[in-house]
């Protein structure tokens, strides 16, 4: 098969957002976002709730448009190719840009193994022994293997919340994406599970470009290399206020609004 080799993960991809605006029906949610996401690094997106940070990451794998009435303007370049160009199939984009959601959402009717296997199986990446190997590798990558190796046949929902979320990460990794999007992945989890997932992200970043949305500034400071700060303007449309290396943004923000936010003066 002329597909990617499973043993050698691909190089993480670059992601460049140019003039991106997004709408839900008539309501605009994002205005003119410009952002350069660095390959092989973790980029955090922070901001108060309602600032459009979830919408932004959902635009990066074209999941935004599955909401009825939603639309997007602007460009998102994945390794230089516009994923919104005419003729680009969102299904192909989504396979290259994996996503983990706010609440753990394993498929309840599938076992732990099947939850991870379904992506590669659908995409025709592997079958038989090769598929098993891929599932094991993905579970190991998600630091879950030791905990579930005896529970592969149990339903995915039988695991604890933190394990479910790592299962969802393993599921996303199994289709071998170049970018991994995480939309507030630890909101629903306890502190210990949160720390495990943060550790995991640091290990994964050499092989994947990671974008993590978080409402938790400490988390952004702990795990990310770059941080984007977003804020909804007076008309409630989200804008990018500041983007830069995490350390600089937290210690020496250029924009007074960023400073106000990180010092706790906004919601």
């Amino acid at each position: 098969m002329a597909g990617p080799s499973l043993q050698t993960p691909v190089r993480p991809a670059s992601l460049r957002v140019e003039g991106l605006s997004a709408w839900y029906g008539r309501r605009q949610a994002l205005r003119n976002i410009n952002l350069e996401i660095v390959p092989g690094q973790i980029t955090a997106v922070i901001g108060p709730s309602g600032c459009g940070k979830s919408t932004l990451v959902r635009c990066l794998n074209r999941l935004h448009e599955v909401v009825p009435g939603a639309r997007v303007e602007g460009r998102v370049l994945l390794n230089g190719e516009d994923i919104y160009a005419p003729g680009v199939d969102p299904v192909v984009v989504r396979r290259r840009v994996g996503m983990v959601f706010q609440r753990p959402n394993p498929f309840p009717t599938m076992s732990v193994f099947e939850n991870v296997a379904i992506g590669p199986r659908l995409n025709g990446l592997a079958r038989g022994a090769e598929l098993e190997e891929l599932v094991v590798r993905s579970l190991k990558l998600a630091a879950l293997w030791d905990e579930v190796k005896d529970k592969l046949h149990l339903p995915g929902t039988a695991l604890s919340g933190g394990q479910q979320q790592r299962l969802c990460i393993a599921r996303a990794l199994a289709v071998n994406p170049e970018v991994l999007l995480l939309d507030e992945p630890t909101t629903a989890l306890d502190p210990i599970s949160t720390l495990k997932i943060e550790d995991l992200l640091r290990q994964l970043k050499t092989e994947y470009t990671i974008v993590i949305v978080t409402h938790n500034m400490q988390q952004a400071a702990r795990v990310s290399d770059f941080t984007a700060f977003m804020l909804a303007g007076d008309d409630l449309v989200g804008e990018l206020v500041e983007f830069g290396p995490t350390r600089q943004l937290f210690t020496n923000p250029r924009d007074p609004r960023t400073e106000a936010y990180i010092t706790g003066r906004f919601g």
Binding site: R94, F107, N123
Partner: peptide, 10 residues
């Protein structure tokens, strides 16, 4: 559930 499946490239 739908979004998780879509995000896998289904």
């Amino acid at each position: 559930q739908r979004e998780a499946m879509l995000a896998l490239g289904a």
